[in-house]
Amino acid sequence: MAFAATLHGTSPVGIGAHRYEDNVATREQPWVRRLILGVSLTFFVLFVFMPLAVVFHQALSKGWGAALRAVTDSDALAAVRLTLLAAVIAVPLNLVFGVAAAWAVARFDFRGQELLGTLIDLPFSVSPVIAGLIWVLIFGAQGWFGPWLIEHGIKIIFAVPGIVLATIFVTFPFVARELIPLMQAKGRDDEEAATVLGASGLQTFWRVTLPNIKWGLLYGTILCNARAMGEFGAVSVVSGHIRGQTNTMPLHVEILYNEYNFAAAFAVASLLAMLALVTLVLKSWVEWQGNRPVVQEKIISRK
């Protein structure tokens, strides 16, 4: 349950701010209001807005040409391809898992249900570095399967499979964490009615469950994808940092930065920052879509 609350969207902002400002009992004196707004927005600008702005400012510090050259460099393109590959494998796997886990946890009662929910959350509370370390212990040269893998010429650690495994681990809970509370809140009545009326399991899922959870599913997938493409610590442990071969985009940023090639590092970083911004826009859009029917229902029921 732990991280669900923080990843969940809230209802559309600003629906009723004037409700508080126009009410004598809930409004502050003007100077208090100005103080709270001033302090909180200053904090926001210093700690959230400026780090974002500095990425784009630094990326363009040597001009558009240099930035463009940095992101179209062959090593950078290889990093983009590897990042996309890791996400293309990790996201669908965790999507299928998320749906299966949500079906099991939210549609049935069984012994250990709560425990299962907590275990699914586990990767969120594990340091990314440990998320990489576990795969080294299993598949590394001195790991459990290390000697066998070397004998058969299979490379997992310091190669692409290790990067994919680390990515799967860190993005493991995202979809399940969105779907479980959503499906629990919707209840089982619709699906039970469909089944009693003779629908097969697959029909029930496609025609009844999926339309109900589609926005939550999309929301979880977007967050899962953002983390998959941006993961640094876990991937850093298993990658081996071979330029053009086992570098994802965040690792490429690190290498450029450590070579004091700041403008290029920030140029590649600005691509990732844009990915983050697209994620936030999509997320807001999905929240708006997901909230719409609820709002309409409220309006109708008020009449």
Partner: peptide, 17 residues
């Protein structure tokens, strides 16, 4: 919308920024 930026921004990008 930007409150969630620290979730969405890759940590390496946040680090160098």
């Amino acid at each position: 919308a930007l409150i969630d930026l620290p979730f969405a921004l890759p940590t390496a990008v946040a680090g160098i920024a």
